[in-house]
Nucleic acid binder design. Structure first.
Lengths: 245, 245
DNA sequence: GAGATATAGATGTCTAGACAAATTTGAGAT
DNA sequence: ATCTCAAATTTGTCTAGACATCTATATCTC
């Protein structure tokens, strides 16, 4: 696969040269995201070095988040950054499917609480009014992408918690409640240091920042039906805004 | 130094056990920040393992930012400097969590005394009025960061001492007393030579200066509810002010 | 066909030794 | 006292080999 013309004794460690070589290949799509690298023994043969030298190189790539190592299975090219397109109609599952990945998610919690300042303002209700809060972990190919908090006015959707628990999907639940067609009115994005809990959920190094998005969805009459705050793994997601947002 | 009773063949890799052991020692101040760890060969002897096993453990600590490795010199305990951001709503635990460290603290003392000149002026009460004083040691990752004296007007919060003893947290106690939302009105920062007692509590050399911050928190009506004087380990903290302070 | 069991293949850990590279230390020359 | 240079010390790299552990596959049993 790769010819092994490494330069020995030039001041650059072999494992660094190998890491560079592998990285260049990966960036060029060899192998493509999600695919497996040759085995350590195989690469050791290709580069004519000891297996441990390969391990050192691969460990460096893993630290950079370029590959993912799985014991007993192999080393895989990390699925690259996903472009999350923010358009008029933004649904998590549609977006991820567009990238030929398996969307999935876990409902972390559903609870009710009085609206705080920001939530109240977004939903155009009075502060203290009860809202339904849904915490959801969004995943693609089994890897966490986002942690989102969705806020809905309880008065308008009193049966929302049951509907979501039933269907497991926010979109489906909203449809059942007669609000199948809602559109995104506004989205704000900032970057922040990750809080410990979010970093853990997102399986991201605590040192790396997270993307923070705020969004308001409105029904056909223009009334706010949902306000959401999502934290994204900046390693694996990048936001793309399109005209008309 | 460290006895080498590692458990072999228990499912936990030796290097992980060693890393844990070293980390615990470092957090406990052995060796203190800036000081050198034993050499790899020495530790290999102490733990009765191969030098490479030690290297693996130390590499893990370096990745966590706990130590710094210098070729030809040795491995040193990293001196961590924490940015303490002073904003409108300043709470110790939030701040430290933002830095991905374990916030913790010890209540050193709770007592009552007549207000002195400075305290009286800050709290807008008459000199000699009884105030509740709470002394607290703030820590991050088990290392002392600050010693703070908090002053509260006794007349307004007569049950504060019990509330704090109960909850162990000033913020929680204040919330229970109906003052969940207080904001920082002013913060002053100076540097000073450390007093012996503070230097000892902060585990800082007595020759090094400390940062001194004074703060007044007011309730939504603008009345002062707390005055605090905190002494910070200048080695490990640095203040950051943001617009709107 | 379903389930248990063996087997092969992959990464993980640990040991051992040799030499390289960077830094500090100390002896010697001036 | 200061400079120079060699030696000692300490971390960095590479090789070699043996097992352990985890995963997927194939085979056998029922």
């Amino acid at each position: 696969m790769t010819d092994q013309d490494l330069s020995r004794g030039t001041g650059t460690a072999l494992w660094r040269q190998i890491a560079e070589r592998l990285k260049a290949d990966i960036v060029a799509g060899r192998p493509p995201p999600g695919e497996r690298l040759p085995t350590e023994v195989q690469m050791a043969g290709d580069f004519a070095v000891n297996r441990h030298t390969i391990r050192r190189a691969v460990a460096a790539l893993a630290e950079q988040g370029l590959v993912r190592i799985e014991q007993g299975r192999g080393t895989f090219v990390q699925e690259t950054v996903i472009d999350y397109r923010v358009k008029r109609r933004t649904r998590f599952s549609e977006n991820i499917q567009g990238h030929r990945r398996e969307p999935s998610g876990k409902l972390l919690a559903i609870r009710e609480e009085p609206a705080g300042e920001a939530v109240a303002k977004a939903l155009e209700i009075r502060k203290g009014t009860i809202v339904v809060v849904v915490e959801r972990l969004g995943e693609a190919d089994g890897r966490p992408l986002s942690v989102a908090s969705h806020y809905f006015p309880k008065a308008r959707f009193p049966t929302l918690p049951e509907a979501i628990r039933d269907s497991g999907s926010i979109t489906v639940a909203m449809e059942r409640l007669g609000v199948g067609d809602y559109t995104r009115k506004i989205t704000r994005v900032t970057a922040r240091a990750a809080r410990a809990a979010d970093a853990r959920l997102l399986q991201q190094a605590p040192t790396k920042p997270i993307l923070l998005t705020e969004g308001i969805n409105v029904d056909s009459a223009g009334r706010p039906v949902e306000y959401s705050v999502a934290r994204w793994a900046s390693e694996r997601v990048q936001m793309v805004f399109e005209p008309g947002t």
